[in-house]
Computed example of a mutant assay.
Amino acid sequence: MPRIDTTPLLTHKDLPGPLSMARLTHFGTLHSLDQTNAYSAEHADPLYGRAMIALKLIPFGTIACALTAAWVWLGGTFPRTVDVISSSHYRADSHGRKIRVFNRKTAPEHVIQVGNLRITTPMRTACDIALLTPGELNEHDACDVLCALFEEYQVSLAQCMQTLDDNHFWPNTQPARELFTSMKHFF
């Protein structure tokens, strides 16, 4: 079957009329990022499709992390922010989403490539999510996302605790350790 569209992101200008995006979102063909930007539901289903979408959303030279990486690994609703590891600062939004930058030491073994997207591993993604403050988590329940990462990608609490121990200078390591400790009864 020939592929009709290979563009994972669309703006309202790519469509025939102003109501097209709302209509296609209503039918489930597109998933809206804001009123003028959306991504294809077809691309959002497989891991590599989500990686293509994330690659278009993150700034060049950055690494997808935290909630953005969790979305690539697990799918679901795209988070309200685009989370990246970088030493730069970004003031402009990316397709209707604020860019949230984390300037954390990143070991080479904590980053892999999915397609052309540089992304934190599922284990490192779990650590980054545990390090978020309650205000940074927004609508996401950290335990649900962490449990899904642990189950889907066989991430262990011991690996996460060791990573936190190795990087004890990161902000919020103590609350992250407490969160992981409270999750022991799930595993």
Rank of each mutant, 00 (worst) to 15 (best):
L15W: 09
M161D: 05
G28I: 10
L55E: 15
I119D: 03
L24D: 09
K98P: 03
H110K: 06
D83R: 06
S156P: 06
P108V: 04
G115D: 09
E139M: 11
T29M: 05
V82P: 05
C160I: 10
L15Q: 07
A107M: 03
R104V: 10
I53F: 01
H31N: 14
N138D: 15
G61P: 11
L10H: 07
Q159G: 03
N116G: 13
A54L: 01
D93G: 13
L149D: 11
T181S: 03
L33R: 00
L117V: 10
N138H: 15
L33E: 00
L132S: 02
D165K: 08
N103L: 02
S182I: 08
S32I: 07
D45T: 15
L47K: 01
G76Y: 02
D14Y: 08
T6F: 05
L117P: 02
K56A: 13
R23N: 11
W170H: 01
I4C: 12
L57N: 00
I119F: 00
S182T: 11
G61K: 10
T120D: 01
E152Q: 11
P16G: 05
L33Y: 02
T11A: 12
V82E: 00
R23I: 11
Y39A: 07
G17T: 15
I129F: 14
K184G: 07
C127F: 05
F60H: 13
N116D: 15
M21C: 04
F60P: 02
V155K: 00
H110N: 09
L146V: 12
G28W: 11
M161W: 10
L149S: 03
A130H: 12
S20C: 03
D93C: 14
F102I: 13
S87F: 10
H43G: 03
K98W: 13
